[in-house]
Design a binder for these strands. Sequence first.
RNA 1: CGGGGCGUAGCGCAGCCUGGCAGCGCAUCGGUUUUGGGAACCGAGGGUCGGAGGUUCAAAUCCUCUCGCCCCGACCA
Length: 571
Amino acid sequence: MHYSRMLLPTLKETPAEAELISHKLMLRAGMIRKLAAGIYSYLPIGYRVIRKIENIIRQEMNSAGAQELLLPVLNPAELWRESGRWELYGAELMRLKDRHGRDFCLGPTHEEVITDLVRREVRSYRDLPLNLYQIQTKLRDEIRPRFGIMRAREFIMKDAYSFDCNDHDAQISYQQMYEAYNRIFERCGLTFRVVEADSGSIGGSFSHEFMILADSGEERIAYCPNADYSANVERALAVLPDSLNSGEAPSVLAPLEAVDTPNIKTVDELCAFLSCAPENLVKTLILKADDQIILALVRGDHELNLIKLKNLLSADQLELADADTVMQITNAPVGFAGPVGMNKYRIIADNAVKNMINFITGANKTDTHYINVNWGRDAVCEYADIRVAQAGDLCPKCAAALNFCKGIEVGHIFKLGAKYSKALGAVFLDEAGRQQTIIMGCYGIGVGRTMAAAIEQNYDQNGIIWPVAIAPYHVLIMPLDVDNEQVMQLAEDICQQLESLKIECLLDDRDIRPGIKFKDADLIGIPLRLTIGKRDLKKGLAEIKIRKSGKSDKISPDNVVSYIKNALTLL
RNA sequence: CGGGGCGUAGCGCAGCCUGGCAGCGCAUCGGUUUUGGGAACCGAGGGUCGGAGGUUCAAAUCCUCUCGCCCCGACCA
């Protein structure tokens, strides 16, 4: 491809709208352009990368026995009402009406549509198992789209759905996808970690997320240094060392005492005021779970995990109570809540709170806290793991201290069970002629997000450094003296030879200053750069530079093709 | 939805407080000289100052409303 004929508008300056490094570089490298908040066009070079990623996904999905199909983006509301998600999915579902006033939505995911298809077509256990997938644009009315295509309202996703006769087979399907996903991200050349995850509103019994490791990631990962365990902190079990968790029975229970704490509301303020450590405090959070009031207690230095609590309560909705509700329940503004005298409400304390003695809580009275609160005597509650795992917690399998890092969620696989097949009546007849419900799994990969994550992981000051497998081109051929016949002839020649070997080339035939070409080359990040200038060519030399290492070699033009062939296999 | 910020040439911004010819840098087009890491000089084009209404002799600037975008939070496969 000739650069001069391409739509490849690089930018010297970074557009003000971009914050994240991948977003800035994609805009500057002419890969994407914004149409509206969270809605982007993919320009030719960006779309080439998308296609590379899609094709790796296709190959691995196909070889795992999955079949590609394409489902409608526009979905009738009827189907979503049948699964219950017309109501449950909430404002994130893009809804619209047709001219007759009938309700539709734009598919944010396709469990309903695929289950509908399968329930119509599958009759017998002989038709199963099935794994069907598509690569398609999804739409979600994100509350706050951000970070360019990382969290967009319209985005390309691969979604696959497996259908099995029973739980055992479904487990096999899940395992196949687990392995296929590992191969996909390995082939993309990315550093990633597979973590246990919460299955969220998709539902189902368990799930794994595939995380590209990057400091800019929105997800926090807890992992064991011995590789026995890794989980999204949303899910990671919070296990304290035994010494702290089940200490000896308290010897002295001091008497409960109310103290004045004028205008002291936060943990930090309270610690400073009473000169104590956050570990001596118990935070009491007032929550609404489907209109039921819940008091959740965590140690002062811990963070409540809403997802764990929501799962524990089997609640559809769980949110922090507003200030008015807190006032009504505790007779005090936010900041003075505590468990003492609140036993008409359900009180759930984190496990780490269980063995605390003589601790400090709010007194449910303005500007007042209790000190020397003790379980049994002053309040009772139930205990569960309801906090976010943090530094100091242990691996639940081998008791090593957990490490933490950040990641970008690019893949998520779920074992769904019968959630959708039951709601929609997707059944089959087994060998004995009995009607059974199909067991499902679903498996997603954010294609655009994978592209962005790849950049987050592979860049330097000068621009993108593409892994070869997903690079828009393999080689950038850069003749410096475009009006020199020999130089151009050689460039064209090598380009043709490489292309005939299926090595993809971009030939920068623009008649501009070399400096601009070099800058653009680094920005766009094609793995290999071949520079041909009349100066070196007189000496019978051309330069090959590796974008990633910055290393370059000057070699005879005759050897360029074999050199490149070899270099690409090593990268 | 709450909090903060921003909308002026394709991009980055100044001008707004204190009303008075709409500017700068980059990019674009033409020319001359340059030519291995974002050149120099000469010349040119490009704007409903996000939109609507109001105040005023006069509005990019002041007032009201509105739309869009970005960031933080809540939210979220």
